[in-house]
Design a protein around this nucleic acid. Structure first.
Lengths: 173, 173
DNA sequence: CGTCCGATGTCAGGAACTGTCATCACACTA
DNA sequence: TAGTGTGATGACAGTTCCTGACATCGGACG
């Protein structure tokens, strides 16, 4: 991230990253599948955390309740800590299309995992996928608002607002 | 697409594509930004068509009504024609992660354009983005169902069903 | 002390792109 | 009709990403 922020993602080579980390280019590729993945290694843990909350949600929870609970949990436990890091990382990603592509497929994978968790609790399939996709949409919008804000409101607040906005939008007629 | 279907996306080189098209590798890159883009050149027209419908929707339409009208219009005018082509193309994309990444960013761009169109009609910003993202989520789920089905139901039917499923899911409690 | 194994280094090479310059076909004009 | 300009293509060299194959090294373990 140092290098990506200093000179931009495009103009930093893998050789440079490896040199600064004190190892070989070949070794870099043994730890990360490609040049982008170095910014997304944490997404596996995020996914586990989200899925765990859905799995552990009380039976009485509706699909979106379970999804929203997972998002809020991750917001507080993962993002609200390392707030500054999350912002910087997002700035790097926003500045480069290749990184945005990677981010989007990570979110899509997340959505698929959440849909799977919902199906495990007996939610039928079009509904499960839609709830998961809607949840990710909410997260995207909330996260964007959170990083763009001047103040210091919590990510979870943005999530709650986005959920009710989505409800309003889909309900209207 | 011929080559991508014959030997898979990964194992076909740009040199091969260029040779079969009767031109040079360098010329290929003058027409397409990269090896993936060759499957997504039509997305610009799709976006224009969708945005046009939203722009032309009656003032009385709610945000989702406008979005859904656009999706239905595209479904009938673009996808339901060349049904077989759409299926084959999707099979190629589904078989390769790099292509899925590209597809996702095209959909995200689409969502941004739709959100812009909504804002142009006076929809405030969190709501506009959410309506657009929700619309794209509906489209993704509907399209997946459409390509996966054994029968020959229309894409627009899947879209209508997904919309009401989404409504049900977001309304519940 | 020997052996094994995982992590790293070294090297060669393929494929995706890019920059630069030359060439060619065609339209437009004097 | 000759000249001129312009856009598309070819030719070629070079960089970067990424991979496979093999060698080496250092620590765990018996």
């Amino acid at each position: 991230m140092e290098l990506y922020r200093e000179r931009g993602y495009d103009s930093t080579t893998v050789a440079e990253i490896a040199r600064r980390a004190g190892l070989t280019e070949r070794t870099f590729f043994r730890h990360f599948a490609d040049k982008r993945e170095v910014l997304f290694s944490g997404s596996a843990e995020l996914q586990e955390a989200l899925v765990r909350v859905v799995d552990d949600a009380p039976e009485s929870s509706s699909p979106i309740e379970a999804i929203v609970a997972a998002l809020i949990g991750a917001a507080d436990a993962i993002f609200e800590e390392r707030r500054e890091f999350a912002r910087q990382r997002q700035a790097v990603i926003t500045a480069n299309v290749d990184l945005q592509e990677r981010e989007l497929i990570k979110l899509a994978t997340l959505a698929a995992a959440l849909a799977g968790a919902l199906r495990r609790r007996g939610v039928a399939d079009p509904a499960a996928s839609l709830a998961a996709e809607a949840g990710i949409a909410v997260f995207k919008v909330a996260f964007e608002g959170w990083t763009a804000q001047a103040g210091d409101r919590n990510l979870s607040q943005f999530i709650h607002e986005s959920v009710s906005d989505l409800r309003a939008v889909t309900t209207a007629r």
